[in-house]
Design a protein around this nucleic acid. Sequence first.
DNA 1: CCAAAAGTGTTCAGACTACACCCATGT
DNA 2: ACATGGGTGTAGTCTGAACACTTTTGG
Lengths: 226, 226
Amino acid sequence: MKKHTVRKKYTFAVLAVDVVLFTVIDDTLHTLLIKMKKKPFEGSWALPGGLVKPNEAPNDAAKRILKEKAGISNVYVEQLYTFGKVNRDPFGRVVSVAYIGLVPVSSVRPKTTKEYEDIAWVPAGELRSFAYDHAEIISTAVTRLQGKLTYTNIISHLLPDTFTLGELQDVYEIILKKKLDKRNFRKKILSLHIITKTKGRTSGGAHRPAALYRFSSKKPEIVEIL
Amino acid sequence: MKKHTVRKKYTFAVLAVDVVLFTVIDDTLHTLLIKMKKKPFEGSWALPGGLVKPNEAPNDAAKRILKEKAGISNVYVEQLYTFGKVNRDPFGRVVSVAYIGLVPVSSVRPKTTKEYEDIAWVPAGELRSFAYDHAEIISTAVTRLQGKLTYTNIISHLLPDTFTLGELQDVYEIILKKKLDKRNFRKKILSLHIITKTKGRTSGGAHRPAALYRFSSKKPEIVEIL
DNA sequence: CCAAAAGTGTTCAGACTACACCCATGT
DNA sequence: ACATGGGTGTAGTCTGAACACTTTTGG
């Protein structure tokens, strides 16, 4: 049986990826969205996404699309869920493997292209007109992100290389949408040994300088955090 | 733009589903596997799986395949992960959406068909020669199942309608591969109010009869269990 | 000297762990 | 009578929650 025999005989689906890229800006969780030009979704916002190439793994497609559409590389991405309802795309049968991506705020430089009207960081949870089933994908992604914050170390990918304990706590509070006690938070985080103190300190704020920390490892790990 | 325009232009992938169907038999976690006849995997074991139809959601395809290949309906299924490495299938580019399925042991009646050499419940973790990347899919599924046991009520789908606390504890111990303290386990489970006592009792064993319980709800819920 | 974030300990309550014996039934 | 799983309570430890003041810097 030749490689393309099956391909020709059974082909039916277009496989796409969509990425929910998160970052934290101004004390708010944001996702990267694209404002569309094409009908029937002109003016609607969509996740950066695109078709998977014949010789490309979906994982690689997710990274490629972030690079192409937003000029962002070196991103942490993980698979979220595969959305395959029959009529989710008015153009035909498209099944989309959705990914979550995380970037620290500094490393971000979305670029607009002629293909789209606009590309922008939009506060997660903000009401918009979304293309396709992207509202559902985003809300699934937010829920997953909240869940994983509490039992893994993925938050590391939302922070710059070094950060203060206050900044770390802020990110938790923003995403989990609840206040945490400062002393308890510090005790807990430090007891886990997932971050280490560096020699650096902040300076420049009109307040006492803070110690800078770094994640001991950014490898995905299961750690009971909160 | 017509519906099939995109389809024709960009088609490349065959979309399949594979199901890791779990049950507990004789104090061991088992998965349903099929022994293949076709080259290059003759004699290897594979997950029940098949192609998604053009007008079928992957979810529905998973249920259909269990029905067709094993004569099993009314199964709880949930999406596991999508496996899309370029060369995972020697016949061509096939992307597989993998599902976890759970059935209580009683409701099980796999049927062999002419298409396959054999279909059987095989102890999870047993060494076999697996077709495709199915070894990887199974091990991902086992890990996920273990994780979800500890923070959801999905174990309900592995038990018959009524069951004793001893049987419930057994299933936890089998899947999590660790002993639990009987008194602590009962205290914890009962305090969660996810099961209710029925009026029934067991009979027939050479021992004291046990109270029968039932899950208050089998809807997926997040509950911190262990 | 004032504003702003950093840093630091103790007490209390609830949850989890370890642990051993009697009970009801069938053979 | 004995073998088998069912059923029950308590004490000690650990973890999580609540809570307020001093420190260091820039402006």
